[in-house]
């Protein structure tokens, strides 16, 4: 489903990713873990080309999205992304946020988009907030709307970039619960997170990045119980 092949990314002289390769199967849930500055967010952002790799290739559904011939806008319709700081459109109500892209980008009929948005809102437990502006929502509510907004495009892949890092501790759970409910429903998910317990519980595979390299990857059981590299051992000692 997603294939990252020897991707490097530099910002000026700083190389944040160094020849990283990862393959993610359809329906799989992968957690990216690592210290700050390890390149995990950059790797995630290479998967929908919000960052363009300096070297290497990225494939989605066997299509090379790093090729200049690929219509990246078309690809992105199929790859949802949830950001640390939500990025809801502040001048639109919740329901307008959710209907915008399906109607304007996918040319979905308004009624269909409305129905779909209403269903999704119900799914994330925010039906009563449909006509409210984002400024009236708590962080956890904003993030749930952001997730629902991405889902409204019916993507096959969802990328989560530290979805709970900007939230008050008491709101983390409500967002994680929504993400959990999506896992293993057929949608392919890649999650950059600092929530180890969550990664262990939800992910099929955990990848550890450090210094721009993919140091280790394993199933959560193995990853947390029997880390192989010294670097990961040290990291886990600090965060667990």
């Amino acid at each position: 489903m997603i294939k990252v092949k020897q991707v490097s990314k530099s910002f000026g002289k700083l190389e944040v990713l160094h020849s990283v390769s990862v393959e993610i199967a359809k329906g799989e849930v992968v957690a990216l873990i690592g210290p700050s500055g390890s390149g995990k967010s950059t790797l995630l952002r290479c998967m929908n080309l919000l960052e363009t790799p300096t070297k290497g290739k990225v494939y989605i559904n066997n299509k090379e999205i790093t090729s200049p011939k690929t219509d990246i806008m078309k690809v992105r319709q199929n790859v949802g992304m949830v950001f640390q700081h939500f990025h809801l459109f502040p001048h639109m109500t919740v329901i307008e946020n959710m209907m915008y892209a399906p109607v304007k980008v996918k040319n979905m009929a308004k009624e269909t988009a409305y129905q779909k948005a209403t269903e999704l809102l119900k799914r994330v437990g925010l039906s009563e907030k449909a006509d409210v502006y984002p400024s009236r929502l708590s962080g956890g509510q904003k993030q749930r709307v952001a997730i629902a907004r991405s889902l409204a495009m019916e993507p096959e892949i969802m990328l989560f970039d530290e979805p709970t890092s900007a939230l008050d501790p008491e709101m983390v759970k409500e967002v994680l619960d929504v993400i959990k409910s999506l896992a293993h429903t057929g949608i392919t998910m890649v999650i950059v997170t600092h929530e180890m317990g969550f990664a262990r519980e939800v992910a099929d595979r955990v990848c550890f990045l450090d210094g721009g390299r993919l140091v280790e990857e394993a199933s959560p059981g193995e990853f947390f119980a029997k880390p192989k590299s010294e670097r990961l051992k040290k990291f886990l000692e600090k965060v667990l």
């Binding site: 919000l50 806008m73 319709q77 949802g80 892209a101």
Partner: peptide, 8 residues
């Protein structure tokens, strides 16, 4: 970025 990620 949010708009781009939605394919707008």
């Amino acid at each position: 970025e949010a708009a781009m990620s939605l394919g707008v």
